[in-house]
Design a protein around this nucleic acid. Structure first.
Lengths: 155, 155
DNA sequence: ATAAATTACTTTCTAACAGCAAGTAAAACA
DNA sequence: TGTTTTACTTGCTGTTAGAAAGTAATTTAT
């Protein structure tokens, strides 16, 4: 049994493998992408995305992400029902990984999945990776700061 | 049922989600890391790594990776038993993703997994990401080219 | 030449998890 | 005050992970 401070069973001491002990999953990075790039912040927002995650799976993943400190759960003072989920600094630092995945997909997955769009945008992103990454992170922080004027932390 | 040319069920048209339809798994990127960084190339090599993948899981993943063209399976002319698994160009292009995962882990996972080592090396990698990435890719290509003098493709 | 060891798997079994559908409870809205 | 919305939980079923054991071909040792 795992202890309460560490809900993850790490396979070994390799940094890369350890990251995959958390992120190596069908949903975790999709959830973080939705928060970072698509401004998803409520339980309902997640359900309405085209990936169509199941409610029980979503609840479990959000709990895990909160437990390990990649996201926070907060609530509007004017609304006792709707919860906000937001990325922490640790979660935000996954931006480079997500951008690299987008570029890899753009360059190598179009024949396997011809529905992948945004050709021109992804060309731009591939050519300005670092700049785009910083813009993503700063953009997220700005939105969050503006929002946090009205938001209180739950946990 | 899926057709034979495409063994992956893509969830939607998002490039990032599509990459995770393939890579979003406990083992796929670990296997690619072992090949790229740890010079793993035979079935036995994989089994001897500290991650300790099960034989049935390994066989299934190698088959999938070959089917989608991220690795190749080859054989030494002087040995009818031992197979070589090697990264294709498409597989090699995952190097940036893997390096970013290492950096993220280095910066954010040490408290959750104190056994993660290589502090100094990962500091260097974080500061010279692009250079390190290119060195990884070129190093792999060089090793492979030298080896391919004696190797023939199986499929 | 034969026996032992090695490599690359496959098979079987069990426990865990994904995904679907339905249900629930509290708050918000009309 | 009744309906809708939000955020979940519960129950069910089929698939997968992981452990262990088995197999078959090849290679090495004697």
């Amino acid at each position: 049994m795992q202890n309460s401070t560490n809900p993850i069973d790490f396979r070994c001491s390799c940094a890369i493998t350890s990251s995959l002990d958390i992120l190596g999953d069908r949903w975790i990075l999709v959830i973080i992408k939705q928060m970072l790039i698509e401004s998803v912040e409520t339980f309902k927002d997640f359900l309405e995305r085209p990936e169509a995650i199941a409610t029980n799976v979503l609840a479990k993943r959000l709990k895990l992400l909160e437990d390990i400190g990649l996201i926070t759960k907060s609530r509007r003072p004017d609304n006792n029902k709707t919860n906000y989920y937001h990325l922490t600094k640790e979660g935000l630092e996954l931006a480079p990984v997500i951008v690299d995945l987008a570029i890899w997909s753009h360059r190598n997955l179009r024949s396997l999945n011809p529905t992948i769009g945004d050709y021109e945008e992804l060309e731009y992103i591939a050519k300005n990776k670092d700049t785009y990454c910083k813009k993503l992170i700063e953009g997220y922080k700005d939105r969050l700061e503006r929002k946090s004027l009205y938001t209180i932390r739950m946990t």
